[in-house]
Amino acid sequence: CHSECLGNCSQPDDPTKCVACRNFYLDGRCVETCPPPYYHFQDWRCVNFSFCQDLHHKCKNSRRQGCHQYVIHNNKCIPECPSGYTMNSSNLLCTPCLGPCPKVCHLLEGEKTIDSVTSAQELRGCTVINGSLIINIRGGNNLAAELEANLGLIEEISGYLKIRRSYALVSLSFFRKLRLIRGETLEIGNYSFYALDNQNLRQLWDWSKHNLTITQGKLFFHYNPKLCLSEIHKMEEVSGTKGRQERNDIALKTNGDQASCENELLKFSYIRTSFDKILLRWEPYWPPDFRDLLGFMLFYKEAPYQNVTEFDGQDACGSNSWTVVDIDPPLRSNDPKSQNHPGWLMRGLKPWTQYAIFVKTLVTFSDERRTYGAKSDIIYVQTDATNPSVPLDPISVSNSSSQIILKWKPPSDPNGNITHYLVFWERQAEDSELFELDYCLKGLKLPSRTWSPPFESEDSQKHNQSEYEDSAGECCSCPKTDSQILKELEESSFRKTFEDYLHNVVFVPRKT
């Protein structure tokens, strides 16, 4: 048989008469490798580009789960590009990614509803959504962080984005990388972005840091009482949809009607710091009717980097990364020049730590249904340095008659930039024990000054392991946590139920 035959053949030295091919099969003959313009397919066939392209389009058009959109890589027609490569849609070739590779997620039936953290986790790592997304989240724990972890990498949506009755959302900033909504599939009414009845939605994105392009379709905003109209108009300008909307697409009466839409800028007039305090004062603000001013709200939190936005980490279910302080308005003076500047002394802060701070007014709604208010920009203030805590785990070892090696770990709280350490030492008198000992005694162990690591005695271990207080009263049991108490109650309830079950099964009433 021919060298490319495997198993047997019907005619000697003829690659077209093989029972099976050793390498690849091409047009009725066995070959060692697939010549151009053919590609290896499933490690035994040679196919042309049209064959591989037909497989790709067949799966793409069917949208069946589990099928493969075949691509070409290293002269092979394979189910998908290997790690580190992405497909070129024009020629199906796998090309190296520039940075992290995109991950295209194809949605069944063309859309997916995100109504819980669990459903959001199914899209973790996706960068391109081939379909439409509907966000409908009523509640949950730590929602802002969970949504950002699972949806934060999405850069492109081919269909539309719909935010509907998501009472738990305060902001859409968890879509931190969303840059493009194509609108290839539109919501009824030709809408590519749809926001309806979101009672706590206050911000779409921080438009000073976020760009969003909507290729096709219109915007729809109705019944978002805490979303200011200025935020919607800003989205029109940034996304390129200005002029597409009709009169009733953006409701003037049901958007922002319960919001404090600040239209003035508060400026800080005085800032002073110490290692654990920050004193702030800002310019006074009074609405047209000074009785509408209820006070100020001061927001602050630790910020290692200057990239904080107002609604980071917030949701309507209680999660809030900001510390909020309510401040009463100052006494009002008739003389504008003698107006008191409101302020606040922030206490209990960490030394040498940068804080993000902003302040906003708290006002009631005027009778004319106009909203007044003022808010400052987010500023960054760093507390002063102070003395560091003591170095940890000092170790001293003498390696000769004239040297001592000293080692330690950095302090747990540096409280500033540590530039150097101060080492103090003092000579001590020799131990009298060394002169009084009889060095001729056998088995004498000389006193040693070398360091030995501390260890816990058996008594201390027994005390720590004991669940009861000892007789001397030195140790006591740790208080039980809520989960331990709940577990004990469940076990007790189970024992009672099981005992009742045994009584009912074992003891049967005697027939009379």
Score class of each variant (00 low, 15 high):
104 V>K: 08
105 C>A: 00
105 C>Q: 00
106 H>V: 13
109 E>P: 13
110 G>W: 03
110 G>Q: 14
115 D>L: 03
115 D>K: 13
119 S>H: 15
120 A>R: 02
121 Q>I: 14
122 E>Q: 06
123 L>T: 03
125 G>T: 03
126 C>I: 02
127 T>G: 06
127 T>F: 13
129 I>C: 11
130 N>E: 07
130 N>T: 11
130 N>G: 04
132 S>T: 15
133 L>K: 00
133 L>A: 02
134 I>P: 00
140 G>T: 07
140 G>S: 14
142 N>T: 08
145 A>N: 09
145 A>T: 09
145 A>G: 06
146 E>D: 10
146 E>P: 12
147 L>T: 02
150 N>K: 10
150 N>A: 07
150 N>V: 02
150 N>S: 11
151 L>P: 00
152 G>H: 11
153 L>T: 11
154 I>R: 00
155 E>D: 06
156 E>R: 02
156 E>P: 00
157 I>M: 10
158 S>R: 08
159 G>A: 02
159 G>S: 02
160 Y>V: 03
160 Y>K: 13
161 L>Y: 01
161 L>D: 00
161 L>W: 00
162 K>R: 08
164 R>V: 04
166 S>N: 04
166 S>R: 00
169 L>Y: 03
169 L>K: 01
169 L>I: 12
171 S>C: 08
171 S>I: 02
173 S>I: 08
174 F>N: 02
174 F>I: 15
174 F>V: 09
175 F>E: 00
175 F>H: 01
176 R>F: 04
176 R>T: 10
178 L>R: 00
180 L>V: 09
181 I>K: 00
181 I>T: 01
183 G>V: 00
184 E>Q: 15
184 E>R: 07
186 L>A: 05
187 E>D: 15
188 I>K: 10
191 Y>N: 04
192 S>F: 00
192 S>T: 01
194 Y>N: 13
194 Y>R: 11
194 Y>K: 12
194 Y>T: 11
194 Y>P: 01
195 A>C: 14
195 A>E: 00
195 A>H: 02
200 N>Q: 10
201 L>A: 03
201 L>V: 06
202 R>Y: 09
203 Q>Y: 14
204 L>R: 00
205 W>K: 03
206 D>H: 04
206 D>T: 06
207 W>H: 04
207 W>T: 12
208 S>T: 10
209 K>T: 12
210 H>K: 13
210 H>T: 00
211 N>E: 08
211 N>H: 10
216 Q>L: 10
218 K>R: 09
218 K>S: 01
220 F>S: 09
222 H>V: 09
223 Y>C: 06
225 P>R: 03
226 K>N: 13
228 C>A: 03
229 L>S: 09
230 S>W: 05
231 E>R: 12
232 I>T: 12
233 H>L: 02
234 K>W: 07
234 K>P: 02
234 K>C: 14
237 E>K: 12
237 E>N: 13
237 E>R: 04
238 V>L: 11
238 V>S: 11
239 S>D: 02
239 S>C: 10
241 T>Y: 11
242 K>C: 15
243 G>P: 01
244 R>V: 08
244 R>E: 07
244 R>Y: 07
247 R>A: 11
247 R>L: 10
250 I>L: 08
250 I>N: 14
251 A>E: 09
254 T>C: 04
255 N>Q: 07
255 N>S: 08
255 N>L: 06
256 G>I: 03
257 D>S: 02
258 Q>N: 02
258 Q>D: 11
258 Q>G: 03
260 S>Y: 03
260 S>M: 07
262 E>A: 12
263 N>S: 10
264 E>L: 14
265 L>E: 06
266 L>S: 00
268 F>N: 00
269 S>I: 15
273 T>C: 14
273 T>L: 04
274 S>Q: 07
275 F>A: 14
277 K>Q: 15
278 I>N: 00
278 I>T: 01
283 E>G: 15
284 P>T: 03
284 P>C: 04
286 W>F: 05
287 P>M: 11
287 P>R: 06
288 P>H: 06
289 D>P: 02
289 D>V: 04
291 R>D: 11
291 R>F: 06
291 R>L: 07
291 R>P: 08
292 D>L: 11
292 D>W: 11
293 L>V: 06
294 L>K: 13
295 G>R: 02
296 F>D: 03
297 M>N: 15
298 L>F: 14
298 L>W: 01
299 F>H: 06
299 F>I: 07
299 F>A: 13
299 F>K: 14
300 Y>T: 03
301 K>R: 11
301 K>M: 12
302 E>Y: 03
302 E>H: 15
303 A>D: 09
303 A>F: 08
307 N>G: 02
309 T>Q: 12
311 F>W: 15
311 F>T: 13
311 F>G: 05
312 D>S: 07
313 G>Y: 07
314 Q>P: 02
314 Q>R: 12
315 D>L: 06
315 D>E: 03
316 A>Y: 07
318 G>K: 07
321 S>H: 12
322 W>I: 02
323 T>D: 05
324 V>H: 13
324 V>M: 10
327 I>D: 00
328 D>E: 15
328 D>S: 08
329 P>R: 13
330 P>S: 06
330 P>V: 14
331 L>S: 11
332 R>W: 07
334 N>Q: 12
334 N>L: 05
335 D>W: 13
335 D>V: 07
335 D>E: 15
339 Q>E: 02
339 Q>G: 13
341 H>V: 07
342 P>V: 09
343 G>P: 01
343 G>R: 12
344 W>L: 11
345 L>F: 07
347 R>K: 14
347 R>V: 12
351 P>I: 06
354 Q>C: 01
354 Q>H: 07
354 Q>W: 12
355 Y>A: 02
356 A>K: 02
356 A>I: 06
357 I>F: 01
359 V>I: 09
359 V>M: 03
360 K>L: 03
361 T>I: 05
362 L>C: 02
362 L>H: 14
363 V>D: 07
365 F>H: 13
370 R>M: 03
372 Y>S: 08
373 G>F: 03
373 G>A: 03
374 A>G: 12
375 K>V: 07
376 S>D: 00
380 Y>S: 02
380 Y>M: 04
381 V>F: 01
381 V>I: 10
382 Q>L: 06
382 Q>E: 09
382 Q>D: 04
383 T>A: 03
389 S>V: 05
391 P>E: 03
392 L>C: 10
392 L>A: 14
394 P>C: 14
394 P>L: 11
397 V>R: 07
398 S>F: 09
399 N>H: 04
400 S>Y: 15
401 S>P: 03
401 S>L: 03
402 S>A: 15
402 S>F: 08
403 Q>K: 05
404 I>N: 01
406 L>S: 02
407 K>M: 13
408 W>P: 15
409 K>D: 08
410 P>S: 15
